Amino acid sequence: MKVKEKVIEDVEHAESIKNAFLHNMSHEIRTPLNSIVGFMQLLDTDVTAEEHDIFLKIIHQNSELLISMIDNMLLMASLESGEYQMERVDFDVSSLMHDLSESMQGQIHDGVELKIMMHESIYVCLDPNSLRRVLKALILNANKFTPAGTITVDYNVDDDMLNVSVADTGIGIAVEDRKKIFGKFEKLDQFSQGLGLGLPICKAIVKKLGGRIGVQSKPGCGSAFRFSVPLLIHHININV
């Protein structure tokens, strides 16, 4: 490809990303904002105690959604600018998985079971915050596209690599869409909430950790996201 053609292609790609960003921002952020403002105004009217509690719950849910979207935008910006900070520390992967399971059960909708497989304690030197961010994003993504069934998280250590899988029994992903999902602001379901940054953030963090991420899927039969990151194993304790 000639230099001029490459420059034109890069400019067109940047313009496409900018347009997608503006479109998603204008729609996705306005939606929870409108809900928050609208239901706050309703609270000033003559409502029953039951309606008051329902409206407060809706305001709380939309506030959390708005905060999550802003957090993702800031996180993506820090990853792209090189300002994202990581700190390798010693921790037990199994303990992190247990804590994650406990904290996320309330975020999984009815009809879906979150199963995190537990293994013996494995102490590694890695950035736990980055690992937790990727896992949480993959679980929430699976929850979004799994009407019923299970989301199963499993992991193992092979030589100097930590391998993790997040598999679901959801709607699956068509072959032609599997590469798209890791692109910024790409949304296969335009009616789903969010800016389309969850999976791109996962990819960027895994890459920063020196690893790789991919997906296997079959429409109607679910998806399995897998990532591997290099680590320093300090020791393995059995049945601790």
Rank of each mutant, 00 (worst) to 15 (best):
M1F: 14
M1C: 11
V3E: 15
K4L: 06
K4I: 04
K6T: 04
K6G: 07
V7N: 00
V11H: 05
E12A: 01
H13T: 12
E15W: 09
S16R: 12
K18W: 12
A20L: 14
F21Y: 13
H23R: 14
E28Q: 09
I29M: 15
I29W: 11
N34P: 07
N34K: 15
G38A: 05
G38L: 07
F39P: 07
T45W: 09
D46G: 11
V47G: 11
V47R: 11
A49M: 12
A49E: 12
E50I: 09
D53L: 00
L56A: 06
K57F: 00
I59G: 01
Q61D: 13
E64K: 15
L66M: 07
L66T: 01
I67F: 03
S68R: 10
M69Y: 08
I70S: 04
N72G: 07
L75A: 04
L79A: 09
E80A: 06
S81N: 12
S81E: 15
E83P: 10
D92T: 01
S95G: 08
H98R: 14
D99Q: 14
D99I: 00
L100F: 02
S101N: 15
S101T: 01
E102F: 10
I108D: 00
H109S: 15
D110A: 14
V112F: 04
L114G: 09
K115N: 12
K115P: 05
I116Q: 07
M118L: 08
M118A: 04
H119I: 00
S121L: 03
I122S: 07
I122Q: 14
I122T: 06
Y123T: 13
C125M: 11
L126Y: 05
D127W: 04
P128Y: 01
K136L: 02
N143S: 15
K144C: 10
F145W: 13
T146K: 09
T146D: 02
A148K: 14
D154L: 01
Y155K: 05
N156C: 09
N156E: 11
N156H: 12
N156G: 15
D160H: 11
V164K: 05
S165V: 07
V166W: 05
D168Q: 08
D168I: 05
I171H: 07
G172Q: 00
I173K: 12
E176Q: 15
D177T: 10
K180F: 03
I181R: 11
I181G: 09
F185M: 04
F185D: 02
K187D: 08
L188E: 09
D189E: 13
G194I: 01
L195S: 02
L197W: 04
P200S: 00
I201M: 03
I201Y: 04
K203N: 05
A204P: 10
A204I: 05
V206P: 10
K207W: 03
K208T: 10
G211I: 01
V215S: 02
S217L: 03
S217D: 07
K218N: 12
G220Q: 03
G220L: 11
C221A: 13
G222E: 09
G222N: 06
F225D: 03
F227E: 00
P230K: 01
L232D: 14
H235G: 09
V240K: 13
